[in-house]
Amino acid sequence: MSTGDVVLSVRDLRVTFGTARGPARVVEGVSYDLHAGETLAIVGESGSGKSVSTLALTRLIPEPPGRVEGEVVLAGQDLLTLPPGALRKVRGRRIGMIFQDPMTSLNPVLTVGRQVTEGLEHHLGLSEKDARRRARELLDLVGIPDPERRLGEYPHQLSGGMRQRVMIAIGLACEPEVLVADEATTALDVTIQAQIVELVQRLQAELGMAVIWITHDLGVVAGIADRVLVMYGGRVLEEAAADDLYADTRHPYTAGLLASLPVVGEAGRRLVSITGLPPDPVDLPPGCVFHPRCPHRDDPRCATELPPLREVAPGHRVACFYELPAEARR
């Protein structure tokens, strides 16, 4: 995969929510660089902070109770210091978003046409007529047959796959530099998921944008990602090129996730499950966030010290004191 210049640079991103039980530290010091044309996957379970960490990029988080700290640099500009008006110009225009549930992310009382043209008129200042023409092109681009008719329809008249395509059309409308797909295929059936994945990959090649793909599914990631961040308890535990992450797994959590996945054609193998439950963001364990569930927590530092992200191979970083033996790395 050829990747270009850094388009988005995130440094020490932190998100905290105030709750009745105390502050919930939902994202704790996430850093990464996103290159033009690259697909970065952020993998994690629910509660890992993966979605919040991307919503926070454009401050799409209610503040209060939320609080966003750190640096998010898009083309030399720190988004977190921008005034609200300027930030709104970034949302949708330069960072596009596709959400998980196209049923609740689309407004049920507006036609598809209105929802696609909204950003075009607002951000690009197109006239109603031009916006409509562009919307037609966009629906065509995302593979919706008979776009003219679809523009006049309401979301409930479309199938789940079609609604997700409309969401993608909206996300792409202003040709953003970065497209964030938040569990964009989770609610869809596998055959429809395959259509959508192929569509996003084709559009990415055509338009040269960078994609952040957020998912819990290590299977989906394998097919699309150039680089992967594994998040857990608000922290990045492992970061690697996709091939290295699967072939040379270094973090016990990543290894556990991979071992717990059933794979077609490997039936009969007993799944190795990770015991216990993900941590409570209000009451994070001291030391490594994963250590209460970790099979390798032998180092006394695991329970007391936060393991720093250290480079174990070029481009491969791991936050763990333990050296996973080569045979356990798959």
Binding site: V190, T191, A222
Partner: peptide, 20 residues
Amino acid sequence: LSAVPIPDPPRERARRRIIL
């Protein structure tokens, strides 16, 4: 079957996917 993702990038890339 071809749409079920396999958690293994080289194998996943090499697959011929039948898109319905």
